[in-house]
């Protein structure tokens, strides 16, 4: 069935836009509240608001997992019989492998969002700033922990709408128009496929500049690859690691980098070994499931060694001198 996923920064008008899209298309709106109600009907009564709390506390991993699984199952189930507009909750990742789905991301400058939030919730500036930052942080963390995907990687979306300079209903209309084009693709004569190789190289360079990284170490690593003129892509692929009996995704893993010339995926971790076990487990699972895919973990020690952080003489530390 039809699927439109909408991911939004806090204060962009995501709730209203999603409602408009649902009303105008007749699609069923799926958001935090409808999921909570739906799951409660199935006897799993975890308020969606608590999800963020669960994530904060490692003790609750088992419960979080259960809840996330139930939620994914519920959404996939709904999608069998209904056309859906899914607001947040990682919809873009859940339906990543489903080509008819349109994945939308709403953005707006921080100040614009701030103005909106102050007005909407009747808050003072300080509280509103805190609220926006906290909400965005939670979204980032949710994507990272549940899907291991960078929420801010705009390349994971088909359409990015800046809601600063338009009414929310106009934004909804744009999304609907995009969905219609997307659902009935025409032959694209001037798409990226027809661009000359040289142009592509420049484009790649420009994209590199604009890349948003999850972690400073990733940015540093990208700079190092640039230094040695090694082509790279940031989180280009998500590997499914676990799914239930109906094929619904329960766990996925997106390695940080792909080096196309080396055909190698690289995952960086600057976590201490004690905290890196989750990542190690994912990599082991990935190696089991995708034996033909080359993936390498660079741990904290290895990464520091790469950057020669412990060296006084920066030129030469016994590495390929």
């Amino acid at each position: 069935m039809g699927v439109i996923t909408i991911s939004h920064e806090f204060g962009c008008g995501g709730d209203t836009i999603a409602r408009f899209v649902a009303e105008k298309t007749g699609f069923l709106l799926v958001n935090k509240d409808t999921i909570a109600r739906g799951l409660a009907e199935h006897g799993l009564d975890v308020p969606t608001d608590r999800l963020e709390d669960l994530i904060e506390d490692e003790e609750n991993e088992q419960l979080l997992r259960q809840y996330v699984e139930a939620m994914h199952e519920y959404i996939y189930d709904l999608a069998i019989r209904n056309d859906l507009v899914i607001l947040g909750r990682g919809g873009s990742v859940l339906f990543r492998g489903y080509p008819p789905a349109l994945h939308v991301r709403l953005i707006a400058q921080f100040n614009r969002r701030l103005q909106r939030v102050i007005k909407l919730y009747d808050l003072n500036t300080e509280t509103a700033v805190k609220l926006i930052k906290e909400q965005d942080r939670q979204k980032r963390q949710y994507y990272r922990l549940v899907f291991d995907v960078n929420w801010n990687n705009l390349r994971n979306y088909n359409l990015v709408v800046n809601t600063e300079l338009m009414g929310l209903e106009d934004a909804a209309d744009i999304i609907i128009a995009a969905y219609r084009v997307h659902a009935e693709p025409q032959e694209i004569k001037d798409g990226p496929g027809s661009v000359e190789i040289e142009d592509r190289l420049f484009e790649d360079a420009a994209e590199t500049e604009a890349e948003e990284f999850m972690h400073p170490s990733e940015e540093e690593f990208a700079r190092m690859l640039d230094f040695y003129r090694i082509r790279w892509e940031y989180e280009p692929r998500t590997f499914l690691l676990e799914w239930d009996s109906e094929g619904n995704v329960l766990e996925a893993f997106s390695p940080d980098f792909y080096l196309p010339d080396q055909d190698l995926f690289i995952e960086l971790t600057t976590q201490k070994p004690k905290q890196a076990w989750k990542k190690n487990r994912k990599i082991r699972r990935m190696k089991d499931l995708y034996p033909d895919v080359n993936v390498r973990l660079i741990d904290k020690k290895g990464f520091e060694s790469l950057l020669k952080k412990h060296s006084i003489d920066q030129d030469d530390e016994g590495e390929e001198t």
Binding site: R223, Y228, D315, D316, E319
Partner: peptide
């Protein structure tokens, strides 16, 4: 050849 370090050559190439 020069080597990459965090402190220097941040935008340079080898």
């Amino acid at each position: 050849v020069s080597h990459y370090t965090e402190q220097i050559n941040q935008t340079g190439v080898v």
